[in-house]
Design a protein around this nucleic acid. Structure first.
Length: 423
RNA sequence: GCGAAUAUGGUGAAGGGGUUAACACGGUGGAUUGUGGUUCCAUUAUGCUAGGGUUCGAAUCCCUAUAUUCGCCCCA
């Protein structure tokens, strides 16, 4: 038997309905925020990812799917969405002919060669948002409000917003140097991983779960103390605007994001429910004022976030969030024998074109099993077509809840069902 | 890349060396060929992830592989 590749999954049945519902909600929400829908290829030239800003991250160095096509081009399945949107922004010269800020959203599959576990897949789906062209903290706050409002609309309760600031380039560098100076004499006390982090990305030491109880961690320098005045004010404004929208947040000075392109605001929203899997970060993002320039565009600031759809769906499942899913079909059409199938499919087709949800028997079931099947499909009405019905054009329609039976001329069926089906 | 657990029909599963692999759900047919959802009957895995080993005998014990699940790293 051929199995799906490791770290992938199939969606069907109830889960499919739920996913479509959530997607529609997201589409509606992004419309309200007036963001533009983007689609970019799921593979890109390898050098979009394998270059400076990304090359220090694990995602790019050891988790990408790289391949050559038949024309010997180096391609990479996208491991994240931001780089592609930035590439598209630059390539289509949106800085010259688009509204400012340019506000983009996308949703689609991402690929990372990882060891699968709860809330982690090799092909997973991200809903993400990017906004280019304004340094205003208003935009940082708006970006954070999107996932928060989505969770609110969905009815997801157990979430926590963590924010932090890394400051501008100057602040970041000052802070980084301070951390190196601080940890250097304590290197022996840190775990193996942290010794590695010290060399590659000292900021990440603060994220460590193993060493988090050590005194040296608690007393480590904090980003906030190394901010320039501009950075400090930017962060204050972000917090102020979040309050204006009644968004609760917690400042977590140890929050450092994995992708190295962030400046100023960074944030994560986590599912803070007891017993949820260990991969509980539902979405994360922040400001990246250098990234467009790094990818050979004009100096343009940006902010964005990405949300894992699988983790969102798991959280909704975990909290038993109710969704208004369609559980009934309107009509089930039964033909008594081979001779009535043509009439049955004619009626079925007609009803569907007029907006009804209609299914029919495709298996030559006997009447008993057809009724059984009708119940299983949760139909509101059953249309039975036999020799007489076909000849006279007068259909037998049974209300499957009340068991009442009606004889209706087939020209009047649509009006009849319109009247009867009140929701 | 590292670690732990698990693997029995369409589904949920019992059986932990001894001959027909329990039970339940679902499917199909029938009692009931134009009115069902209840009930009853029949039927539904020569096979227990794959390959090797131990044994008179393996779903059961051992080894290897694979897959799944969960955790670390990292991240959404």
């Amino acid at each position: 038997m051929i199995q799906k590749p490791k770290g992938t999954y199939d969606i069907y049945g109830e889960d499919g309905k739920k996913l479509l519902y959530v997607r529609e909600l997201i589409e509606g929400l992004m419309e309200k925020y007036n963001y533009e829908y983007f689609e970019t290829p799921i593979f890109e030239s390898s050098n979009l990812f394998h270059r400076g800003a990304f090359e220090t991250t694990d995602i790019v160095t050891k988790e990408t799917y790289d391949f050559k096509d038949r024309g010997d081009r180096d391609l990479t399945l996208r491991p994240e969405g931001t780089a592609s949107i930035v590439r598209s922004y630059i390539e289509n010269k949106m800085y010259g002919n688009h509204t400012v800020p340019t506000k983009a959203w996308y949703m689609g599959p991402m690929f990372r060669y990882e060891r699968p576990q709860s809330g982690r897949f090799r092909q997973f789906t991200q809903f993400g948002v990017e906004a280019f062209g304004s340094e205003d903290p208003l935009l940082d706050a708006e970006i954070i409000s999107i996932p928060v409002n989505l969770y609110k609309l969905l009815g997801l309760k157990g979430i926590k917003v963590n924010i932090n600031t890394l400051g501008d380039n100057e602040s970041r560098n000052n802070y980084r140097n301070a951390l190196i100076e601080y940890f250097r004499p304590h290197l022996d006390e840190l775990c193996e991983d942290c010794k590695e982090r010290f060399k590659k990305n000292p900021l990440r030491i603060l994220d460590c779960k193993v060493d988090s109880d050590l005194d040296i961690m608690k007393n480590a320098p904090r980003t906030i103390d190394y901010l320039t005045d501009y950075s400090k004010e930017h962060f204050e404004k972000v917090k102020e605007y979040l309050k204006s929208m009644n968004i609760d947040y917690e400042i977590n000075t140890n929050l450092v994001r994995g992708l190295d392109y962030y400046t100023h605001t960074v944030f994560e929203v986590e599912a803070s429910v007891e017993g949820f899997g260990s991969q509980n970060v539902l979405c994360g993002g922040g400001r990246y004022d250098n990234l467009v320039e790094t990818l050979d565009g004009p100096k343009t600031s940006g902010v964005g976030f990405a949300m894992g759809m699988e983790r969102l769906m798991t959280a909704l499942q975990y909290e038993n969030v109710e969704m208004p899913l369609i559980k009934n079909i309107d009509c089930y059409v039964i033909s008594m024998s081979e001779n009535e199938k043509d009439f049955a499919i004619h009626i079925t087709n007609d009803l569907r074109l007029n907006g009804f949800i209609v299914d029919m028997d495709y298996c030559n079931r006997n009447l008993k099993n057809n009724f059984k099947n009708a119940d299983k499909l949760n139909t509101k009405f059953i249309i039975i077509i036999g020799e007489e019905e076909k000849k006279s054009g007068i259909l037998t329609i049974k209300n499957n809840q009340t068991k009442e039976e009606y004889k209706i001329n087939h020209d009047d069926v649509i009006d009849f069902l319109d009247e009867k089906i009140v929701e």
